[in-house]
Design a protein around this nucleic acid. Sequence first.
DNA 1: TGGCAAATACTG
DNA 2: CAGTAT
DNA 3: GCCA
Length: 606
Amino acid sequence: MSDGSSISSHDGHGPSFTFYPAIYVLPTHLSLESLHRVEECLLNRDARLTYDPSEARVFLGNIGQRKRAILELRSRGVCTELEMRSVPGGVHVDGALDLGTETESDGQTNQSTGHLKRARSSDAEVDGSFINSDLIRVVRLGWLEKCVEEKDLVPMDQYIIYQGRRVQHPDDKATKGSEILHRAQQDVSRPHRGTTHRGTTHRPPKLYKQSTSENEDTPPPAPDWVTNHVSYACMRSAPLHPPNERFIDQLVKIRKVRELTLDEIGVRAYSTSIAAIAAYPCEFRRASEVLALPGCDMKIANLFAEFQQSGDGSLVAASALDTDPVLRVLHHFYRIWGVGAKTARDFYYARQWRDLDDIVEHGWNSLSRVQQIGVKYYDELLEGIPRAEVEEIARVVHRHASAVRPGVECIVVGGYRRGKEASGDADLVLSHRDESATHNLVVDVVSSLETEGWITHTLALHLTTSTRDQQTLPLRHDTGNHFDTLDKALVVWQDPSFNDTSPSTPEKKKRNPNPHRRVDIIISPWRTVGCAVLGWSGDTTFERDLRRHAKKSRGWKFDSSGVRERTSGGQVIDLERGGETWQEREKLVMEGLGIGWRPPGERCTR
DNA sequence: TGGCAAATACTG
DNA sequence: CAGTAT
DNA sequence: GCCA
């Protein structure tokens, strides 16, 4: 690590912290810029930085009080007992478990010990006894500054605010215990690269760094939404393939694990983080860049550090999805249409099933009808639908819709509209400028398609406005009644036409080789078509934040069927009146909601 | 420390 | 009612 | 897991 180019990565004259234990920088009382500067400084000097408090042994921070230090540690789940003995000449404090009753003793107490050891530590042996121990230290930032100033390692002693030894969590719950155990097991099974066992600590990628220039380390200026702390995904542009896509893929896998383990809050948290990262316009180079994003904190920054230092860009927690035998099976079941996390777990734990064959063999009759369909077409429904085929499906649906309602419009929404190369399903919105034309439209379109053989199964029919309006209020069917969601049909689709090349056996019809597809047909009255299209075009987090933003900033309730006041009896807010086309109307809604317009290709929050 | 998007239809 | 889907 |  010390060849000619070490000059640049060491500023030409800095001490090396190579032999120091993992360092965690306490963000408290530090601006983001300062935090970044400190991190940069450490990285330049080969320090092992970590964002995982559980593996850090040096906590560097802009704090002065021991009480504060203990607080900082505890808030990060680091429980310690005071340990002063190994500080040369250190004040031996008994009754070590004082966690916060102290008021007068601060860093100064320990500093009285500083002179003694200074005599015997002026070189690499500095802090040696500490380095080879399992002690935890909270150290004032001044230590680093001093090291830089002296261009050499300086003993920590004068700067130690607190020193302790890890103890077991006093409130260690079963869940936490098993989590730790789980992590430990993962660590064992994890193929460690290289010679280290440093977990998620990371070093600067040497070769990479050395070949780059002086201001290599200055991260690109943060985008507006970072500096302004814009925390709504619907107010940022997130492209289909963002620069940090590989990291996002890993986080998405972790989120999937959270789904499978019924951790809804974890799912939401990861979704928020992912959405922010998906909007970030350049590749991260430092974990501190991650830290600056709204919705991302130490946990995510730490995962990025792991991502960066792992040779193959994989995260242990993400790999579990393919590695862990339980998660593998749960995931397998979860991908059956009609089976969610609860049912997948039920299949595994209660029924003791392990694959689709078990389901078919031992539980077929206990499945719901749609679950049977989901199992039957398991592989085909998981295949993505190429864009050309989505367009084809849309043409057919439009043709049938036009036959029953001339003048109807068919809008492809969903992943297709965001630009995805292959969609999980085809989402289509049907609308008509004549509102009366949308009544019973789903039913008419679906039966027409069924008759012609395009729809093989109807998984669900949601009939709300049409039937009810017509039954209860035939005279004013469309006036103001927006308290319901849209009519829709969730169907299984298959192109009925195929080459019957060998009519040699006329009795036996040849099996249709075309894959089964999932198609959603949504009906929207024209007056809210902008809302429908907006509500059906964004990724989940985009849509979630749309609603959150409408609520927080306007006191409105937004969904694909319209916008209304949150007050009881909520007045309908018509934001799209005046828009001639559905595109214009969607834009009016976005502007009216105060999020500004952005094309569907920039609503990819993952 | 509480909140996190949201409503509705359908199934067993 | 609990669970799933959009 | 993050934030107000």
